[in-house]
Design a protein around this nucleic acid. Structure first.
Lengths: 246, 246
DNA sequence: GAAATTAAATTGTTCTGACATTAAGACTTT
DNA sequence: AAAGTCTTAATGTCAGAACAATTTAATTTC
């Protein structure tokens, strides 16, 4: 089964060889060159075909296995799982999600303040007593239709921000420009019924179902950057994710 | 900063060396021996201290970085992010979740049948036309309190099952005993309000908020094993997860 | 013909070694 | 004193090799 997938690697490129292989195989899967269920050549042959060492080839395949695209079985081989597996839930904001899908969200800043953090926020963001944070609430609409009501607390030593900035772009984009490299987030998803305020803001019936999300994001230096409580209209938003068993 | 964390490795153990290191460092972090923010020795020294090669040490640290416990920075070093990072959402059933937390759930099988799958189910489970599946609904209670209403469709060529088995143990445990190695799952979480039937079964008010989850699980050979629609009482269940940026 | 054994194929683990890249501090120069 | 330059320390990437563990298929034996 010599499935010569047409990928070539560029040794002069700054992007690591194993990552070039990852991208190549990903592309082959998504384009259909590698069909779901098909077997790949063994690691050693594949490495030889691309003039790579086996560790490099393996590192690439490791990543693809972790992301759920490939499945390996000792003594048997490696095969493509399924092309229609979505990407695992990534660390991105709702704004990113929507703009990536081609829709154009608008943001309305309902309140904005730069205040001393209360005890709960100090604890969550691991800040010393007396620290100030940005606190704001935003309403996000897509196609004129309200989708999410968001309340956030953000430490103020990353980037200065104001209402105008938050209206124009996503929070994460502002923070990234401030030099933050997000690394992980803890979030909790649940459900509530809309109270009067939420219903009116989201243009939904009082008592209708809302998806709730609480998230705290941490950057690559361990700083807790922001925490937020968001509610989404249950009829227009849900969280989709792919879980990979290790 | 010679932080000699008291971990030792057993070369005669069948568990891989790199995994022993992962477990050791995890334990050191959770027990507080390694405090959040503290720096580890560099890879080469650590490897030497444990009489391991650098690739082995690196593989262990790779895993810890991926799971969000450690953070590495080229040219600088490696440090502990946080001790309180929960495990990423794993591929497990609600039953597993609860029993792991020491609670004792009970399961009531509301309906059970072995029928020809409808078109939607055939598509989701990728089965040939005319295939039969198990279809059942269950009510899960904890401490006598209803928590979840679950409807599932399961392919019938893994393990035979009946009402009694489903009352006694979790679906995933039955399937695992049937030789299934779960590898990944796609799930979608949202919110709805309880209809009359759901409200009565879950002992909640009609119109109260419910968390919904739809999940399809795939095993390591690419077979689509089961799909289910679950609803949880919004006041007693939420999904918690840790996202790691790659 | 069925069971047990053997062989082959493939991934899993581990080692040694080398060089590249990045970040931070020390040093020198202006 | 400020700016730029060098040095050092650490992680990042890559190669080649060897052996272990597991699965499947082929072969042998009873």
């Amino acid at each position: 089964m010599a499935n010569n997938l047409g990928l070539s690697i560029d040794r002069s490129s700054p992007v690591p060889l194993y990552h070039q292989v990852v991208q190549g195989i990903e592309a082959a899967i998504h384009s259909g060159v590698l069909e779901p269920g098909s077997r790949l050549d063994n690691e050693i042959d594949l490495a030889a075909q691309l003039n790579l060492s086996r560790p490099t080839m393996r590192k690439a395949m490791d990543e693809l296995v972790r992301s759920g695209l490939l499945v390996r079985k000792r003594g048997v081989g490696t095969q493509v799982v399924s092309s229609q597996v979505r990407r695992p839930l990534e660390l991105s904001s709702l704004y990113d999600d929507l703009t990536n899908n081609g829709k154009k969200p608008t943001t309305e800043v309902l309140s904005f303040s730069h205040i001393e953090a209360d005890d709960a926020t100090l604890a969550v963001l691991q800040l010393p007593a007396g620290s100030k944070v940005y606190h704001f609430t935003r309403l996000r609409k897509v196609g004129g239709k309200p989708l999410a009501l968001m309340e956030n607390w953000v430490r103020d030593d990353i980037a200065s921000m104001d209402e105008a900035m938050l209206s124009a772009e996503g929070l994460y984009s502002i923070l990234r420009r401030g030099g933050v490299n997000f690394r992980l987030a803890t979030q909790r998803i649940g459900a509530v019924t809309a109270n009067e305020y939420q219903a009116s803001m989201l243009d939904a019936a009082e008592g209708s179902a809302l998806v709730t999300m609480e998230r705290t994001a941490v950057d690559d230096t361990g700083r807790h950057i922001e925490t937020g409580h968001h509610v989404y209209r249950g009829d227009s938003y849900s969280f989709e994710m792919t879980l990979v068993q290790r």
